[in-house]
Computed example of a mutant assay.
Amino acid sequence: MTMDLSRFNTLADDTIEAIADKVDDLLGDKIDADLQGGILTMTIGGGGGQYVVNKNGPMRQVWLASPVSGAWHFEWDESGHWLSTREPKLALDAILAQELNDRFGVTVAF
């Protein structure tokens, strides 16, 4: 059964806002996090690339574009995680946290 659009929007918006807040708090001096219209763009200084996190309402997915691992699509799982559509054991928060941890040497947990 497809998730109701209103519930999807709430979950996706809350997730994207939480990521923006955490990145700004922990890495604000290294990453420029800009949340506009539900699209989070995180630009790494010094030409280090850009992450983009956004939602796709018709598909009920959150999408991640990573300069490290490429494009990902995630669907909400009732366990409380956005899980990858290609690697269902991988979650959005875990992938992003690991990449940021590896890059900046700080513990990022969403």
Rank of each mutant, 00 (worst) to 15 (best):
K22I: 14
Q36I: 08
D13T: 15
M59E: 11
K30E: 14
E99K: 01
L64K: 07
L83D: 06
L90W: 15
P67V: 06
L11F: 11
L27H: 05
K89T: 15
L100V: 08
D24N: 13
A18Q: 13
N101C: 02
R7G: 00
T10R: 12
G37W: 05
M1R: 14
V52R: 06
R103T: 09
A33P: 15
V52K: 03
G45S: 11
A109M: 04
T2C: 03
D21K: 10
G46P: 03
N101V: 06
G38I: 07
L5T: 15
V52M: 02
G46C: 01
R60S: 13
F110Y: 12
G46L: 06
A94W: 01
V62F: 12
V53Y: 04
F110W: 14
D29T: 04
K22L: 04
A71M: 07
G48Y: 02
L64I: 06
D29M: 01
D29R: 01
S84Q: 14
M59V: 07
W63N: 04
T43V: 10
R103Y: 10
L40E: 05
M3H: 13
A20H: 01
S66D: 09
Q61F: 11
K30Q: 08
I16A: 01
T43R: 08
I31K: 12
G48H: 08
L26A: 09
G70H: 14
R103G: 06
D32V: 02
